[in-house]
Design a protein around this nucleic acid. Structure first.
Length: 220
DNA sequence: GACCAGGCACATC
DNA sequence: GATGTGCATGGT
């Protein structure tokens, strides 16, 4: 296979330009968004974050004060709102207890250690942990989401059975250790996923066409 | 009205 | 270890 991740990256960047991710004004807001967007469109997450902003609850200490039921009502537009209220609480309690509420202190910890700690929180899985590390903490951790998997599998660049870590390894092992590149690349996967590589693919206009092997598109 | 969206935990076999 | 299911709102 002659197509390497860096080729995909360059093609997407050329086609779509810089995505300027993550949409969020502070590391805390980014972290909240990472939980709220689990299996949920960003539009709905924005409504929930707007509610939090209107309620002056976009700082860790403020949300820490809220009862889980109050938090749930504020984030209701994001869906799974009772579940996500608990998950957010779990995350915030962790930062409060272990790092005295300081995200700065938390993100100063070794990446792989912090990643394990985050994964120990109920409600924080691989993608949410990596999103927090990369987009809130500026730490080197590649975010793999459904779009990433779909794009790579559909083009036959990875095997259909590849799990989260297989995909992460495939990308990270051939890319430079560059936080900004990781940031941009994941955003570009989401961009091409939203525009072309949907569940029912619309390949005719897709900028990744030119990178296709002769075999073409794999049915998923 | 069906289908989908920037997952994760838990039950069951 | 693999597979199935609950969680929920809002846009197309």
């Amino acid at each position: 296979m002659s197509t390497y991740p860096v080729d995909i990256y360059e093609r997407l960047l050329q086609a779509f330009g810089h995505q300027d991710w993550w949409p969020g004004d502070s590391p805390f807001e980014v972290m909240v968004g990472a939980v709220l967007t689990q299996n949920t469109s960003w539009k709905n997450v924005e409504k929930a974050i707007d509610n939090l902003r209107d309620a002056d609850c976009l700082r860790l200490a403020d949300v820490h004060q809220l009862k889980v039921e109050e938090l749930a009502e504020l984030i209701r537009p994001a869906g799974y709102y009772r579940l996500k209220a608990r998950r957010l609480k779990n995350l915030i309690d962790f930062v409060a207890d272990r790092y005295d509420g300081s995200l700065e202190a938390m993100f100063a910890v070794d990446v792989s250690q912090l990643r394990e700690e985050l994964l120990g929180i109920n409600g924080i899985g691989p993608e949410t942990a990596d999103s927090i590390l990369l987009y809130a903490g500026d730490l080197l951790s590649f975010v793999v989401d459904n779009y990433t998997a779909r794009v790579l599998k559909r083009h036959g660049w990875i095997e259909p059975e590849a799990d989260y870590y297989a995909i992460q390894d495939f990308l990270a092992s051939s890319l430079p250790d560059d936080v900004q590149l990781y940031n941009e690349f994941h955003a570009l996967f989401v961009r091409v996923g939203n525009s072309y590589c949907r569940k029912t693919p619309q390949c005719d206009q897709c900028p990744l066409n030119e990178l296709l092997p002769e075999s073409g598109i794999v049915d998923l």
